[in-house]
Design a protein around this nucleic acid. Structure first.
Lengths: 218, 218
DNA sequence: CTCGACATAATCGTGTACGATGTTTGAAGT
DNA sequence: ACTTCAAACATCGTACACGATTATGTCGAG
């Protein structure tokens, strides 16, 4: 080989149409552009996106695996409805099992190069709700990656997706500052390399976040 | 309606071809009928199953979401390869975070009607390896369901799938009796309603099972 | 006049076949 | 031995036909 100095190991990464449709539909669903519980018509989307219906079916199949739509044979797809209180409670309970130990390990494995990234997610402007949701997901995801356990990181990411569907609805005013303070405490413990403190901070954060979420729903 | 005595809450039947293909391919992959790391050709499967290729692509898309195949655009699908030691270790670590508390809650919520099912999974004949793997999955899955947290149960099921891919390879002789004894201890604690004992038994089981697994691999 | 059952039509999801596109392989040519 | 190029191969997207479901309209009974 004359030259392979270019740092790209991942060469052949051109997506197919179904992947693009997946991204578009996923964004539509998570942003609320497609109302929760509404029907998702294949032909209508095909006409809207000016493509055939096969890639759309593929994308919807993947979105079903993600839990963002549900399939009814010979009847069509339906956007995932708002989960009930029980499911939300279960979701936070599951995160409560995974994330505190993960945060503790992230604190142990902490490298200074990650400090800036973590602080950036904490210092996100408090006005923009979607930006805060994004920063929240980035922070928790980064901690999971820092812990070194990729299986846990992947598992948590799936839980985050199911959370974001209803996170839009809790737009409490004071919640932003509380969340920021709790994130601040977590990051401080992680940066200090204090595992037990990070776990405690994460536990407290998830407990209060779950309570806030449940309190803001009917 | 002349007769619809059963409430229609039950999930709609899997009547679509792509779902059947999904089941078939999933079984082929998990049973090793499709070698690990081998190419999965769409047209060949279509000819073999006497159907068109569209349902197969849909099924493969879902299997990719399950982590059983990986997709290479314009090149085809490849059966998931055997995970490396790190991934297996991470897998058991993740289960170690989820399953002990889940077993404890299952013990608290125990109903006598579940006793027979649990015992049946423990008393599975020790000779048949696939039957034992199935019973193992049924036991752990049942405990997760009994705990009442469906999110955790669903999460664990995904982890089990990724485990079964390589569980075929550890065919140690003594392992069967050890596994059975550990399962016995877990079920005994659960049936007795002893949460802490169930959690401890589960922790011990996962620790030794993980060690056995890692010891039997290169 | 209202309600319900049945037949009919519209709608939408599903599967098949075929053409288009991209990749790989192999051989010819330098 | 390396490059070039072309043909074979597999995947991908489109268009169309079929089937199931749901909606609509009509008729008849109470």
């Amino acid at each position: 080989m004359t030259d392979s100095p270019s740092p790209e190991l991942a060469l052949p990464r051109r997506q197919v149409l179904a992947d693009d449709v997946y991204d578009v539909l996923r964004e539509m669903l998570l942003s609320g552009h497609i109302p929760l519980g509404s029907r998702v018509k294949i032909d209508a989307l095909a006409a809207q996106l000016k493509i055939s219906n096969t890639p759309i079916r593929q994308a919807l199949g993947r979105l079903e695996a993600d839990g963002l739509v549900s399939k009814h044979p010979y009847r069509g797809f339906v956007a995932a409805d708002l989960p009930d209180r029980k499911t939300i409670s279960d979701l936070y309970e599951c995160r409560l099992l995974l994330e505190p130990p993960t945060a503790a390990r992230a604190a142990q494995e902490f490298r200074t190069e990650d400090r800036a990234f973590l602080r950036r997610q904490v210092d996100v402007p408090g006005g923009d709700l979607t930006a805060m949701a994004k920063a929240d997901e980035l922070l928790h995801g980064k901690l999971a990656q820092m812990s070194g356990n990729l299986v846990v990181a992947d598992t948590l990411e799936r839980l985050f997706v199911r959370s974001r569907a209803f996170r839009i609805f809790y737009a409490r005013e004071g919640a932003a500052e509380l969340t920021r303070a709790e994130h601040e405490a977590i990051v401080r413990a992680v940066v200090a390399g204090d595992g037990p403190a990070a776990a405690d901070a994460m536990t407290g954060h998830l407990r209060s976040a779950g309570e806030r979420m449940l309190a803001s729903l009917p």
